[in-house]
Amino acid sequence: MLSQNTLMQQRPFVASTGLRAPPRFPVAHSVRGLAPLVDELKAAQARTGLPDVQIGDSVRIGLLVQEAKSSRVQRVDGTVIAMAGSGSTKTFVVRRIFQGVGVELSIMLHSPVLSSVEIVRRGKVRRAKLYYLRELTGKSARLKEIFVTKGDKAAKAARIG
């Protein structure tokens, strides 16, 4: 009733003429806004159960390669030297030396092409982009490994759980 009065004060012609009858149909408001709808669809596309890939990790990934009639999985080993994006558009760059030539693959983490990701070892790094590895070859291009103990794993699991 109060709100109705307020409305009448704002629009006196409505009150004076009384032409408008109360709404006969209930007005259906959209349940959510437009941006949350996009977010929801993005979330629906995102994959779950992916390992926590971080910069400096040595990873072994499987890529689905579509050939003429069948598809196979191409294994790629390398180091994660950069990550970009967030949510379903998150990408990571895997670098490896192939036949003496540096090769980098930029892969979308949530892409269905990525059939598997396995973290072989964690490297100790102090920056988010390891582009300095491009200038280094051989032994100097290695990263110091972080050894994860059982205790650490348990502690982390406890934090997440």
Binding site: L34, L37, V38, K42, Q45, L64, S88, M108, S111, P112
Partner: peptide, 11 residues
């Protein structure tokens, strides 16, 4: 509503 990156079945 907006734009997004969509993954097709072909990947």
């Amino acid at each position: 509503a907006g734009m997004m990156t969509y993954f097709t079945e072909a990947g």
